[in-house]
């Protein structure tokens, strides 16, 4: 990862994190690259890009009052460029701070 930091182009994981943090002001932002789990995935065979699958866990006040579909769509919109340039799939958990601490 440190060697990647040395290159001029950010890794997809870094770009994803940066875009989401800027827009969502997340209190929790976990971006896990699980592309290795889908290495044999038929739909991505031949893809030269290795960063194809990510699990996202995001806690942000921006999700307040939003349905699950709207939250996911918001995230997809923010990452539209990535989805068009090799990102294949996202698993998304999107919650408000209140939902992670119901007692408050």
């Amino acid at each position: 990862m440190s060697s990647r930091g040395a290159t001029a182009v950010l890794s997809r994981a870094s770009r994803i994190r940066s875009k989401l943090q800027t827009a969502l002001e997340a209190t929790v932002l976990e971006v896990d690259d699980v592309s290795y789990q889908h290495a044999g995935h038929a739909a991505v065979k031949g893809s030269s890009d290795k960063e194809t699958h990510f699990n996202l866990n995001i806690v942000s006040p921006k999700f307040e009052g939003q349905s699950l579909v709207k939250r996911h769509r918001l995230i997809y919109d923010l990452l539209a460029d990535e989805l068009q340039s090799g990102l294949h799939a996202l698993s998304i958990v999107a919650k408000t701070p209140h939902e992670t601490n119901p007692s408050k």
Binding site: L68, V69, H72, I92
Partner: peptide
């Protein structure tokens, strides 16, 4: 009605 992808179906 559009429901969503597998994450949302599983959550529901």
């Amino acid at each position: 009605e559009f429901i969503g992808g597998s994450d949302i179906v599983l959550n529901m």
